[in-house]
Structure formats: C-alpha cells, structure tokens
C-alpha cells in the first residue's frame, strides 16, 4: 500500500471455492475491522426466516409443546425472500398473525401415527403456505443436486408411536441472528490472516536431512515438506499454518533461531463461510455487504442530522439491536 493522504482502499475478493452452502474466498487490501464487521454481520445480522410462533392444536407425543416449538424454530428455512420481507413488528399491514404475505409465512403440520412402527415427524411434514419458504433439506431434495434423496430423511422433529398425534400451525417470520440463533444464516463464518512464510535458506542448508525432517514434522499441520529431489525444505501449504509457533520454537530448540520467519499479512484474509442452507453462501456474503453498506450509510447520515433516524426504515431496527 502506498502511503498517500487518501486512505481509500480498493478491497478485492478472490473466490477460491464455491458451493451452495460453502464459500471460501480471499479478501485483500482491507483492514481487520472490515473483515470482522463482515463476519459479524454474516453471523448476526443477515435476515432469514424461521418459525417464531407455534399454535399447538393437538400434541400427544412424548415431547412437550415448548420442546417441539423450540425444535421447529431451529429448522432452517429457505430464506431467499428474507431480504425483501418486512420484520413483523414493522409491518403495518398486519399484526404478525401469519395472514400477511409481507412479513410471515404460515406452516401447517398434521401427523398421526397409525402403524406399529415409530413414525418420524420430520421437516418434510411441514406444509408451507409459500412455496419459496420451506425447510432447507426439503428444498435440497426437490432440486436433488448434492443430496441422495433416500439418504435424506429430513430433520426429525419428534417420533410418534401408534395413536400419537401432532397437529399445529406455525408462523415463520423474518428475523436476525442477534435476536435468536435460529435466524442466523451461517453455520460457520471465520477468517484467518494469510501467513507469510520466509525460510532462511542459508541457515536451513546447515541442517542435516534428519534435522530437516524433524523440523518439518514439528508442525502439527502439514505446512512444510522436503522436496524429494533437491532435499530443500519447501512451503507446501502456507495456509495450513495455524500460528502455533511450533516450528519457530523447534528451530530455537535446535539452536537455529531465525530459521524461519512467519508473519501474518495484515491486509489479507481468507474467509470460510458455511451456510445453514437458508441462504446460499455466496448470497450470504452479498447480503452481508449490502447490510454493511446500509449501516455505513446510517452512520454517514447521522453525522448531519440527529433526527435522521426516522428515514432509515429497516436499518433503524438493526441499529437498535433487534
């Protein structure tokens, strides 16, 4: 980075690997604060849809009502619509009773076991009023891209034996992970600093092959290897390095301090994002950036006017933390 008076930078993203529910990308030319903000937003502020209100009509299963309601809430629902939806508390059209298409989706579940074997009530038994919102495993089955349909029995809600019944109406609403983890679209969001490894070749060559091997093996992860031809120590996978300092300690123990120097590149991050399936991992990142932008707008505007609060609409809610 050249040091000019302008601090503006132009962050770049390089996607390494992309699946529906998994994304690995590099984020360059930016700061820890930005990277972390992105991570935090993905975890806690990207909205999804999850079951929030359950009306039990009949429940003779072994699990009690609250138990089932809690389990229902944790089923991830496909939430591509979530960004456009309204929070039910901001929805003027309704009072969040599930009748309103802008803020809620109604589900029905009605299962009764009339056989001798135990019957699994799964997410597949949840009947949605909106075809775009359904349990993620059911959605995955219908597209049948990565899943084997026979393998995927759905997310079990409860098991029923003969004569037991479960009937309920559930309303799914838009929400964010900050309010409850069930609205968090991310299973894993993490980043690491890209390591910058410099081997002191001269010093390394003073080691015997045996010592090199010992040194290479002192790292718990496979970062270094010995080139079979040249017998030089080479970095095979710098990112496998976990900043554990084991190789540095080993070098010191061998009486060769400075054998290797490892720094973290402070402006370069490797992100790993795993989605619950509610939103595609790639979309999750985009949504997060969108929300980050909205938040920054809010900060920018609030400098000029204190009363600007009213104008922010949806974002206002994010600011207030819920």
């Amino acid at each position: 980075m050249e040091s000019t008076t302008s601090y503006q930078r132009f962050p770049k993203i390089k996607i390494r690997e992309m699946k529906d529910d998994y994304l690995k990308f590099e984020l360059h030319s930016t700061d820890t604060s930005v990277a972390n903000a992105l991570r935090r937003i993905m975890l806690a502020e990207v909205p999804t849809i999850a079951i929030d209100l359950v009306e039990i009509e009949a429940n003779s299963s072994v699990l009690n009502d609250e138990f089932i309601a809690h389990r229902l809430g944790l089923i991830p629902l496909t939430s591509t619509r979530a960004m456009e939806m309204r929070f039910s508390r901001d929805c003027d059209a309704c009072d969040g009773d599930g009748q309103c298409e802008y803020c809620s989706v109604e589900f029905h579940l009605s299962v009764r076991c009339d056989q001798d074997q135990t019957l699994d009530v799964t997410s597949a038994d949840l009947i949605s009023s909106d075809p775009s919102v359904m349990a993620v495993d059911v959605a995955a089955r219908s597209t049948s891209s990565g899943y084997d349909a026979s393998d995927n029995k759905g997310i079990i809600i409860v098991k029923l034996r003969r004569g037991q019944e479960l009937r309920l109406r559930a309303i799914a609403r838009k929400g964010i992970g900050k309010d409850h983890a069930k609205w968090s679209p991310a299973a894993t969001v993490t980043f690491m600093y890209e390591p910058d490894i410099h081997i002191n070749e001269d010093l390394m060559e003073t080691l015997t092959l045996e010592d090199k091997k010992n040194w290479v093996e002192s790292s718990p992860t496979k970062v270094f290897d010995i080139d079979p031809n040249t017998q030089h120590v080479v970095v095979v996978d710098a990112e496998a390095y976990t900043y554990d300092d084991e190789v540095i300690k080993k070098a010191e123990a061998m009486g060769k301090p400075g054998l290797v120097e490892i720094y973290a590149k402070e402006d370069s991050f490797i992100f790993t994002v795993e989605s619950t399936g509610a939103v595609k991992a790639s979309q999750l990142v985009l949504n997060a950036i969108e929300i980050l932008k909205q938040k920054l707008d809010a900060v920018r505007l609030s400098e000029d006017t204190v009363e600007a609060d009213d104008q922010f609409g949806e974002l206002n809610a994010h600011m207030r933390g819920g």
Binding site: R39, R40, A44, G177, K178, A181, S184, V189, T190, F191
Partner: peptide, 12 residues
C-alpha cells in the same frame, strides 16, 4: 454474550 462477540478460531 452474543456469539459474534465471542472469540473464534480459524476453523470457526
């Protein structure tokens, strides 16, 4: 504490 405020490892 909220999850996003808690420490995390690079494995997540």
């Amino acid at each position: 504490i909220q999850q996003e405020d808690l420490p995390f490892s690079e494995r997540g």
